[in-house]
Design a protein around this nucleic acid. Structure first.
Lengths: 330, 330
DNA sequence: ACCGTTTGCGGATACGTTTGCAACGTCCCG
DNA sequence: CGGGACGTTGCAAACGTATCCGCAAACGGT
């Protein structure tokens, strides 16, 4: 049988309420607090989170919902989240939705009940669906912006600008853009960075945000006039690289390739991938802190923010140039 | 305010106990059950897990502890686990220990209190430490065997045997073996497959089980006489491949490379990697089912197994031959 | 020495749910 | 036609913890 506060109370010769106060930092005399702590230690007492949660209304748990754990981007975010969560003694539920909107909404609904707050990582659902099922007061979005909800995003449009600038400097005038899942928010941001530029953009796709999607995109890109390509993310870029290699197209001599995210794979590809890097773990950490502050967790001294006028945080991106981009063929 | 069973009860015109029975499958007449379910649906009722857990003693949550989420091997296992867990309506805490033994033990201790059971994925801690802190009755090991605990492992020794057979058939007589973290169980299994073979084995390492570890191993291997190398896992193998390419060593003409795990990266490497494939998601699913059966979850009709004489499950492995292995140089 | 204030502590209550127990009908069989 | 069995339902007691409230004692100031 597990030891409860009652056991500790009788062992220390005090009442249960005194034990509770001694443990949670209420008003107790130093002497009795010492006695209680010693008894608790000796009995190996650990509070029952369920019972605590029942009365305080908070579980000490958070939920993280991602489209695909296999995608290193989300693995990195998850790593940042879990590390930071451990340091503030919170548990993290992780739910992998397999890029499925219905599964995602279901996860939000079911996880939302049993946690203090939710972290939604580039959710696939529409704005309206999201607002309907998620509590804006206890949710932070990552890599997506929805009016009325807090979010942590990277300045992807700027990343695109840098990438295009880089390609133009290398002489490219026609650039293919491989789109990801159906006009996702992140996808639109990528495109937003192209506005006002006179580079000719050839849209390709959409394709799945995976290696296979990239392979598929390879042939589509080659069918067009582009001399360079912006892929939806690094996975797609690497798939593309493979298809180009298989068809004997030299990179970067005949075709330059740029990805997004800078996952570790970008460094391992052949050739190493030029990509728009975004701070993934940092995004996870920032989102968690934002959430804790929002729900009045262990974040700061103040209580839950009554009027969160801020829309969230925007992290910087930057282009890291490797070997997959070069001067345009003449 | 959240809707509780009381709300449902008054909405359906019955008592709370009837609501509870209707929802948990107790003895209720079909008519009232229908009424209750409809009311619950209409109000969007979700039971409070904390309250449920308080009385039933089970939380409906499980813990999954992995050394590194960034490693696709663990991401795959996690995917299998979370998918299956959702289908039986269980939550999954995931904790990333960063390959750190102390963090791992801490995670086991703290997660162990708030969950019904734990899944330990290739834990780095020693047998004794593990047995001290984990409850054998509510823990399943993945990719590791410890006497007295249930586990799901792959027949890695057999995989090694297949790999060595493959290399011998190609004419290799001296094979380097790149070891991973300090004599890990999985590492010893890899070596176990070599017993009784007259192939000369050159031990290298240990190195970190990562891309960088592989880069490091590359030079070590080249300093020896081996014409082929068995890398601790695919990440190491790919790092090795890169280092070999950087030093102008042709693969597989001058050196053959074999990995373990068959993560998706193996297909994307250059050249595509010959590797020992292990069923990762299946391992996660199997481990979860074993755990549920053990703790009497939603697995089967029987109650918790009183005398678990079985040590666990062994899954088959097989060698998948790609382009990183070839005939030995003369 | 007296009174107002603070401090330390125990008792009781509440959180939302499951479940044992008892009461109520209804049906069947003797 | 009466009595026992059974299926269905409500009442109340738990589960382990935090916290409100009340009481006694200690304390400080006049």
């Amino acid at each position: 049988m597990r030891t409860t506060v009652h056991d500790v109370a009788s062992a220390a010769g005090v009442s249960v309420s005194t034990v509770s106060r001694a443990l949670t930092g209420g008003r107790v005399s130093p002497a009795t607090r010492e006695t209680v702590l010693r008894a608790a230690e000796r009995l190996g007492y650990r509070p029952n989170r369920a019972a605590q949660g029942l009365i305080t209304g908070r579980t000490g748990n958070l939920g993280l919902i991602v489209p695909d754990l296999r995608n290193p981007f989300f693995a990195d975010v998850a790593k940042g989240v879990t590390a930071r969560a451990r340091s503030v003694d919170h548990g993290v539920f992780i739910s992998d939705t397999d890029e499925d909107v219905a599964a995602e909404l279901e996860a939000v609904a079911s996880l939302g009940r049993n946690t203090d707050g939710l972290l939604l990582c580039s959710p696939r659902a529409g704005d309206a669906e999201l607002l309907e099922v998620a509590d804006p007061a206890a949710t932070v979005l990552v890599h997506r912006r929805v009016p009325g909800m807090l979010s942590v995003v990277a300045d992807i449009a700027d990343g695109t600008r840098q990438a295009i600038g880089h390609l133009r400097a290398l002489g490219h005038r026609r650039v293919a853009f491989v789109a990801g899942p159906e006009d996702s928010w992140a996808g639109r941001q990528r495109l937003a960075g192209l506005a006002g530029d006179d580079t000719e953009i050839v849209r390709v796709g959409p394709v799945a945000p995976s290696f296979q999607g990239g392979v598929l995109a390879g042939d589509l890109v080659l069918a067009g006039p582009a001399t360079a390509v912006l892929a939806y993310n690094d996975l797609v870029a690497v798939g593309l690289l493979h298809r180009l290699a298989a068809r004997g197209v030299a990179v970067p001599e005949r075709m330059s390739v740029v990805g997004y995210d800078d996952i570790s794979l970008a460094l391992m590809s052949h050739p190493p991938l030029t990509t728009v890097t975004v701070p993934k773990e940092r995004a996870g950490v920032a989102a968690l802190e934002l959430l804790l502050r929002r729900i009045g967790g262990a974040g700061g001294p103040g209580r839950p923010e009554a009027a969160p006028r801020e829309a969230g945080i925007t992290l910087p991106t930057s282009l890291v140039v490797r070997a997959s981009t070069g001067v345009a063929p003449s």
